[in-house]
């Protein structure tokens, strides 16, 4: 807030100035508030009495939380999504981090072509990504084997670019004087990497992994095209939305939201503490 209150500089009456300065902030907060309205509905509905397709809050209950897996197929789908999410995150984070190091730290022919190759999947609409993968799987004779593994391949593919971009920006913005100091103090390249470089890049890698997991966990359009008979959580929700969504789905949504907020806050606190410790 301190930035919003510069020393009064006399050209305008202070009241008008106050309004002008805070108007933008108030409008911004309103926009932010609006982005949370649907989340509030999800949280509220997770405590709602009723089975399916209720359009209003009936009465408070904890039943949905107590019997999350009442519809076993929902929890099965959730488990599929978690497994795919974890594996896709591991794969994409590993490949993407290596590539980010290559692009920032190394010089080779075809760097700009590689940058383009990594940028394009983020710029293509999901329906195009999904349908071209499906075209490949069909042409390669895999149309009968669509399922867990084809979904996983697709997820690693579209998470990869986001990992590269996230880790790359962390690496590019990093001051390399610490690494040089380590080398000057006769650390071997391996020691420098494990003791200095990796800890410094780690927040970027962690952020990329979180982003990957949420992209994978949430994806519907690409997954739906390449899933065969496998059912992920978003596909379950999509199917259920035609006949009425069970209230337990909102429990999962609430848990996801709370978990991700917690992870982000812990990360934020951690980096604050680190930077404070460094500046001491």
């Amino acid at each position: 807030m301190s930035a919003a209150r510069p020393a009064a500089r006399g050209t305008r009456p202070p009241a008008g100035r106050w309004l002008r300065e805070h108007l933008v902030l108030v409008l911004g907060l309103l926009v932010l508030l609006y982005t949370f309205v649907p989340i509030a509905v999800v949280v509220l509905m997770s405590f709602n009495e009723g089975t399916r397709n209720v359009y209003a809050f009936q009465s408070f209950t904890l039943d949905n939380w107590a019997n999350v897996c009442e519809d076993q197929s929902m929890c099965d789908a959730l488990w599929v999504s978690i497994r795919i999410g974890v594996l896709a995150t591991l794969g994409a984070t590993l490949l993407g981090t290596l590539a980010a190091f290559a692009l920032v730290r190394h010089d080779f022919r075809g760097r700009s072509a590689s940058n383009l190759l990594i940028f394009l999947p983020m710029a293509a609409p999901e329906i195009v990504l999904g349908s071209s993968l499906l075209a490949l799987f069909v042409a390669a004779g895999f149309s009968g084997q669509l399922g867990f593994w084809t979904i996983l391949i697709a997820h690693v593919m579209f998470c990869l670019s986001f990992v590269v971009v996230t880790v790359r920006s962390r690496l590019a913005g990093m001051d390399d004087s610490l690494e040089q100091a380590a080398m000057d103090l006769y650390a071997t390249p391996a020691q420098t990497f494990w003791r200095v470089t990796l800890p410094l890049v780690f927040p970027g890698i962690l952020g990329a992994a979180l982003l990957s997991f949420s992209l994978s966990f949430d994806d519907f359009i690409v997954t739906n095209l390449n899933a065969g008979t496998e059912l992920t959580f978003p596909m379950y929700v999509w199917g259920a939305s035609q006949r009425g969504v069970p209230m337990q789905v909102n429990v999962i949504g609430t848990v996801m939201f709370v978990l991700s907020i917690a992870v982000v806050l812990v990360g934020e606190l951690g980096s604050r503490r680190r930077s404070r410790a460094l500046s001491r």
Binding site: M1, S2, A3, A4, E21, H22, V24, L25, G28, L32, T35, F36, V37, P38, I39, V41, V42, M45, S214, F217, D218, F220, F233, P234, V237, W238, S241, V245, V249, N250, I252, G253, M256, F257, S260, I261, V264, L265, E268
Partner: peptide, 28 residues
């Protein structure tokens, strides 16, 4: 320009809804 020291918090809040299922948000 206006958030001062709440900048980071507000940025986190911008991304936070993004972590809840796209489909669930649309259904709400």
């Amino acid at each position: 320009f206006r958030a001062g020291r709440w900048k980071n918090l507000m940025l986190v809040l911008v991304i936070a809804p993004f972590f809840t299922s796209f489909l669930l948000r649309t259904l709400s």
